[in-house]
Simulated assay, not measured.
Amino acid sequence: MKKNILTLTLCTILSTSTFAADYQSGDIVVRGGITNVNASSDHTSILLNNTDSSMTLTVDDNSQLGLNFLYFYSTNIAIEVLAATPFTHDVTIHDKNAVLNVDGAKLGEVTQLPPTISVLYYIENQSAFKPYVGLGVNYTIFFDEQFEDAPKSLGLSNLELDASFGLSYQLGVDYLINDNFHINASARYIDISTDATFDVGGESIGKATIDVDPMVYSIMLGYKF
Rank of each mutant, 00 (worst) to 15 (best):
S17T: 15
G222Y: 13
A39S: 15
A98V: 05
H182C: 10
T75S: 15
I117L: 14
G108R: 13
V99H: 05
Y139G: 04
L8T: 06
G33P: 02
N97L: 15
M215D: 14
V173F: 00
D149L: 04
A128E: 14
F19G: 08
A39E: 09
M220W: 00
N49H: 08
D22T: 01
Y71F: 15
S127K: 08
N62D: 10
S186Q: 09
L221S: 04
I28R: 11
H182D: 06
G134S: 03
R31W: 06
H43G: 14
Y139D: 07
L10S: 02
A150Y: 09
S204I: 07
K3Y: 05
V173K: 04
E124Y: 08
A21Q: 10
A128K: 15
D191W: 03
N125A: 01
P151E: 06
A187E: 13
V137Q: 00
N138T: 12
T16Q: 12
K96W: 09
T88A: 15
Y175Q: 00
S63E: 02
V37Q: 01
I117C: 05
D211F: 04
A185S: 07
D27I: 12
L10Y: 00
N138I: 04
V99W: 06
S45I: 07
L100M: 11
S53L: 08
L8Y: 05
N68W: 09
S193D: 13
Y139I: 03
H94K: 08
